[in-house]
Write a protein that binds this DNA or RNA. Structure first.
Length: 199
DNA sequence: GCTATGATCATA
DNA sequence: ATGATCATAGCA
């Protein structure tokens, strides 16, 4: 008979990928937005068996003080200071009274670039849909408490994936904005069912 | 201090 | 098309 439980707990292989380094996030914002597709978002608080993970399948670039749609367009405020800080930190904001959205700060300190993570494909301990920026934070347990967190340190990290599976990158206008609405700065894994819309 | 509004989502 | 629901920004 098979034992009901494994005798030894094993770390889920999906969270063992190498953590992206700060130099990754220091690249131009559009490059980071494209390169984040296929990477693994990991939330590891508490016991490792409770780690949550999802594969990033949709992103949007927000360019900073040159981008009228960016929160950082009007410069540093208490809210946007993380975007102007060093790259590789989480910018989390609260929207519509009920949702959190996760971004990563890009480019060198002093610039306001960031990438909004818009959708993940659930991989591990994610029991809600990840298709949409407000949904993925709920599914991953990400809140304002994570604003400013260093993504190279945890508890939230983004990791390289071993199965390199190549895919086509779709491009479109960004969703839900008015200014600069036609800039082609949304990127997604073409055809992936967890993309929020317009696969 | 006060008010308008939003990088959303579910429901109709 | 509309409502839920509140942190933030801009203004007084």
């Amino acid at each position: 008979m098979k034992p009901r439980m494994a005798s030894r707990p094993s770390a889920p292989p999906i969270v063992s990928g190498r953590i992206l380094r700060r130099s990754f996030y220091a690249q131009p914002t559009v490059e980071v937005a494209r390169a984040l597709l296929g990477k693994i978002l990991v939330h590891s608080e508490g016991s490792s068996k409770d780690n949550r993970a999802g594969r990033i399948v949709e992103t949007e670039a927000y360019l900073g003080t040159t981008d009228p749609a960016a929160h950082s367009y009007r410069g540093v405020t208490p809210r946007t200071k993380v975007l102007f800080g060093p790259p590789g930190h989480a910018y989390v904001y609260f929207i519509y009274g009920m949702y959190y959205c996760l971004n990563v700060a890009t480019e060198k300190e002093g610039t306001g670039g960031g990438v909004l993570i818009r959708a993940i494909e659930p991989l591990l301990n994610v029991t809600e849909p990840g298709n949409g920026p407000g949904r993925l934070t709920r599914a991953m347990g990400i809140t304002l408490a994570h604003n400013g967190a260093d993504l190279t340190r945890g508890p939230i990290t983004i990791r390289e994936t071993k199965q390199s599976g190549s895919f086509a990158i779709g491009v479109s206008a960004r969703i839900g904005i008015r200014e600069a609405a036609d800039w082609p700065l949304r990127f997604f894994v073409s055809g992936n069912p967890h993309v929020s819309r317009g696969r």
